[in-house]
Design a protein around this nucleic acid. Sequence first.
DNA 1: TTAAAAAATAGACACTGTCAACATTTCCGG
DNA 2: CCGGAAATGTTGACAGTGTCTATTTTTTAA
Lengths: 172, 172
Amino acid sequence: MEKLSLRACANRAGVSHGAPKNHFANLAVLQGALATEGFKRFASTMRAHMAGAPADAKSQVMASARGYVAFVEDNKDLFRLMFSMERRLDIYPDLLPASREAYAVLREVSKGLSPENCENPQGQLSTETMLWTFIHGYAILKANKQFYTSNAETGMDPKLEDIFPVFTYLDK
Amino acid sequence: MEKLSLRACANRAGVSHGAPKNHFANLAVLQGALATEGFKRFASTMRAHMAGAPADAKSQVMASARGYVAFVEDNKDLFRLMFSMERRLDIYPDLLPASREAYAVLREVSKGLSPENCENPQGQLSTETMLWTFIHGYAILKANKQFYTSNAETGMDPKLEDIFPVFTYLDK
DNA sequence: TTAAAAAATAGACACTGTCAACATTTCCGG
DNA sequence: CCGGAAATGTTGACAGTGTCTATTTTTTAA
């Protein structure tokens, strides 16, 4: 894997090593810019999956989750970069808004999950936090190929559907 | 935050810049060694919390989860280092065993969760994978201070207890 | 004690990010 | 169209880094 570096970018662009400075003050800013673009595509991917699914709450949740996982699958390095920037969301102007745009998707679908709890802010927070936590954990483990127990037995990552139905209890 | 580097380590040890080479072939190996020690302490922390809790399944699960979170809270950088090595578990001799030792804790407690499913390998795998996924996601988000919605509203991370009871359905 | 093994040293090399001074190009208002 | 201003590119330098080599020192053990 070719490592991300300002000089490598300059090289690939056929430009001198100091040129990137005019566009990105330093390496962290470049990473922030890449992460910003990543979050935008991330949200788009989730929304694209949602658009192709039935409108009911459960389908939308599953579609967004599948979009989430598909993005991670296709952009493992970018995904890691994105969430390695999560503690420096002020490094690039549009990074914080872009990350919230992605989070907003999960907020939206989580709203449909427990309608009777929507009046309770704490309950609503728990639902969306739980959803976020779970999908994020799954994605991280998948991006890092860390499902070793599962892999040892089946040679594959566990399918999202096999562990995700836990949320069906939410709309009972 | 002082960045981890071989030369910085040599400096702090009051030794020449080439000395570490005799103990760690390269930087990745040093990181692997640190991660190995981290996984061992990680498992110890979870087991210590479990030892101080009632023996029933739910208490043990909650205790291990609290140990998990406590470790992350006290060792954020080490935790990130540990799980950034998850794709290179062969870099250091004892790293893979140490990481499995930590995973074994969660496997243990997850066994108590759905006794009637233990005969079904797939069911059992789902339970422990779900538990692992969820706690890991929570820990990552906490380590990266990424509960921004919650923080914006309450100024605090969501408590594990507020989102964790989702698993109570498992032993119904 | 002495030979072998382990550890430390010093120098070199190729990278990296970052900075400053300078040159070039592009753009836009007069 | 032109000329200044802004943007962009260039070059050289510096301090850091990982990594390699040859050499020396220290420790270990037979």
